[in-house]
Design a binder for these strands. Structure first.
Lengths: 317, 317
DNA sequence: GAATTAAATGTAAACGGTTACTATTAATGA
DNA sequence: TCATTAATAGTAACCGTTTACATTTAATTC
């Protein structure tokens, strides 16, 4: 592999001139600049990032901290991982994955953190010295990338109301995190605005449990009913419940999900859902973080993505 | 962040002694060794990997090259990515993701390659100077990690035969890659051994297409029939076809998938499938690659994982 | 007890870049 | 015209670690 010195020797200039051509080309005369460019091309020069990292006291590594207890390999996180990895690659950074079970966090230039519990701020996040971007969380004082959860739930609840169903149940996940509170709010406010009674049920994020719960409800129910769910998993569980009881979706039962990551395309009937552009959001996360690193930790503000309502045949025909 | 020199100063020894305590502790007297350990602990010393990378002419980066055309964010690849990332982390390597759309491959210490077409060997892989491990492929002359695809298909075909169904169709993906050829072989040989006629259908890996194809078949069919599919996606398509035609699974129609990554748990009825332990295989990939790097590119041999037959209610009750 | 060898530590120079400073030349201005 | 400044190129030191070699001290040999 060719080095700066090799390029310099071939162009008969000093290393410094080559370095300048790369970093501040305007400071080099057109003549030498061209010589250096030719030399670089001939030798197929690629900078040694380890050497750069050394002088800049950087690691060129950013870490993705997934603090989720359960399944780290969920499509949700994997899409995020992919989005981040794609963006980092272009800027010569690389990625390390850290989970709750990893014992230390170690050296890196910055972190993207997701899947936190409330206590993690004090226990983990606040001790970090490096720049941090939160993903899918919103916490005052931090930079974060998130989707407008409240808006999403409003959209989906209104969509149901517009299709002539007034009895709407909310199925949510029993965790105390801002994203879930926002989803609940979005549903609740929309219902209250229409003078309707909100009915909120929280449970574990499992399609089995949702199915079990929904079956109990559906057995007693005799009017048209809708379930707006806070995840695609819960939505799929409700779909299964309706199918087992021989009810027609969407005529007897309407169902919606939330996330729009893959699963929803598989379920049959296909789930109306709120899509979060997670890969895109992952890229944004990485961009924000690298900019923050370049700007010495300066606050970057937040990016709130508009959710997208994907209407499919679990609510309409 | 404390450096070697800081540790040395505090312990009143030379940098070299500290370096030796870390790399060849047996060469240092017990007395000094303890001094150095104490000093390291007090200063919370963590080596600067960039500096090590520089002297060793390493990057501490390995790349995952996903050459798949279609959806790079498939759970299959994401599980692989997770497995690799977990293992790398422990050995202070980091990961970069490279797809076909990335323009260059760039510097790294080694690569894990997957999702190749036959022509990629000549066009891409053979030009690489770094150690390479193939994932989910088997090509002579390369080190690879794979699952025994043929065995898997044999297992699943025999499972169907043992449950009293003799009319078995194979639904595969129309790509010319070794893993698909092996799966076809596994089915074909098992059928021939029982004097049964193999019927092989290849199509795009889409649940819609499988559904469409299976509906055509099922409309004309009046005996008990089974579909062994080369992916969970295809399997799910067949399930949908049977459901649309009001046929009972598994009495009228038996269906099996292949991969066992997540999807299969969502479909209802749940799919009998062949599970590949992908996260585990990803870890193994990373281990093999790092060992290969440490051993200067020495051949590591292959790891063929036994597939696991997961029996669920798409074939039995 | 002088010579040889082994063990334990230290010194200096790399690795491939960048930063900070110096030196040269040309352009500008009073 | 001579001093000042701007533009351009070069030199040397440093980032944190390891490698290769040199030095010191202690142990062994004859």
């Amino acid at each position: 592999m060719a080095t700066l010195s090799d390029v310099a020797r071939k162009a008969v200039v000093s290393k410094m001139t080559v370095s300048r051509v790369i970093n501040h080309p305007e400071q080099v005369s057109a003549e030498l600049r061209q010589l250096v460019y030719n030399s670089m091309k001939e030798l197929n020069y690629v900078p040694n990032y380890a050497a750069q990292a050394l002088v800049h006291n950087r690691t060129q590594v950013i870490k993705l901290l997934i603090l989720e207890e359960m399944d780290t390999t969920e499509p949700y996180y994997m899409n995020l991982l992919a989005g981040i990895a794609i963006e980092l690659d272009q800027r010569h950074y690389s990625l390390q994955l850290v989970t709750r079970s990893s014992h230390t966090i170690g050296r890196c230039d910055g972190l993207i953190v997701t899947g936190m519990r409330e206590t993690d701020y004090d226990h983990i996040i606040s001790h970090l010295e490096q720049p941090v971007i939160l993903f899918g969380e919103n916490k005052k004082g931090y930079d974060y990338v998130d989707v407008d959860n409240k808006k999403g739930m409003q959209m989906v609840t209104e969509h149901i109301l517009n299709h002539g169903c007034q009895k709407i149940l909310f199925y949510g996940i029993e965790i105390d995190e801002p994203f879930m509170r926002s989803r609940i709010e979005g549903y609740e406010e929309t219902m209250k605005m229409k003078q309707l009674l909100p009915q909120i049920n929280l449970m574990k994020n499992s399609s089995h449990i949702a199915q079990f719960e929904a079956e109990k409800v559906l057995q007693k129910n005799h009017e048209r009913i809708a379930f707006v769910c806070a995840s695609d998993r819960l939505g799929i569980g409700v779909v299964h419940a309706a199918q087992r009881l021989g009810l027609n979706i969407p005529y007897d039962v309407m169902v919606t999900g939330f996330d729009g990551v893959f699963l929803d395309r598989i379920a049959q009937p296909k789930l109306t859902t709120i899509r979060q552009p997670i890969v895109e959001m992952g890229k944004t996360c990485a961009k924000l973080l690298l900019d923050k690193i370049d700007q010495d930790g300066m606050k970057q503000g937040n990016r709130i993505y508009k959710p997208e309502l994907i209407i499919r045949n679990s609510t309409t025909t």
